[in-house]
Nucleic acid binder design. Structure first.
Lengths: 115, 115
DNA sequence: TTGACATATTCCGTTATCGGAATACGATTC
DNA sequence: GAATCGTATTCCGATAACGGAATATGTCAA
């Protein structure tokens, strides 16, 4: 086995900077592929490939509009990420940093007491 | 060029299920490597390798304790992910789903009006 | 129906990743 | 200081990701 398919889930899909940028752009509303190509400064095939990955994990929806394809953000799969990361929110909050310090000091004190 | 190193940032580090599991375990407190090996049911080298990635993006800190190495969670790098994902929070909320429906209906109405 | 435009797919080469097995290293313990 | 324990690193082999270039598909316009 080599590695998890990028297409497997939102975590993998979003690990790529370009795909995050695409989602950022789509947050501003529906966009045709060539719009994205221009805004990102990428080659068109690369953009289409990234869009495919995003489509496969459900992060974007497509709609045909004449010869264009309009892509639209669908953030729902991001909720899984949000939920998971939120679990750790305390970890980076100021107050818990302080708590860590207190706990460390406490540990040191105990260590001394054992002598 | 092939692909960005997994080791590059928190997004990539966390894209791997095993590494997320490790962080989940460390959320419960410091752990020695063999603890994690047992809890995860993985081979020890694999665990050490995942820990290395996590270390390199700053998601865990290490402390030497005799012949053991105690790993400890450091969630700070997750804040970047949290911040980014939070940008899209409205996208999956119930109220905005409803708004989407309304907008769709409106679009349909307009389409009919054009006939 | 031919040509131009918009997008998707395929093919290619390079590189990173992952798991597994073997091995190296470093700190204890005997 | 030799055996042992805990962990890290290295060396595979397989896979798949990525960018680039070429090409295919599909739609509109003349």
């Amino acid at each position: 086995m080599a590695r998890a398919a990028t297409t497997a889930d939102a975590f993998n899909a979003v690990a790529e900077l370009r795909r995050r940028q695409i989602l950022d752009l789509l947050a501003g509303g529906e966009r045709a592929v060539n719009d994205l190509v221009e805004l990102l400064g990428l080659a068109q095939p690369q953009v289409s490939k990234h869009l495919r990955v995003l489509r496969e994990v459900g992060l974007v929806d497509v709609r045909d509009e004449g010869r264009q394809r309009m892509y639209r953000l669908n953030g729902r799969p991001l909720k899984i990420i949000h939920d998971w990361v939120s679990t750790f929110e305390q970890t980076w909050s100021r107050r818990f940093d302080q708590l860590d310090v207190v706990l460390e000091e406490l540990k040191d004190t105990e260590a001394k007491d054992e002598n």
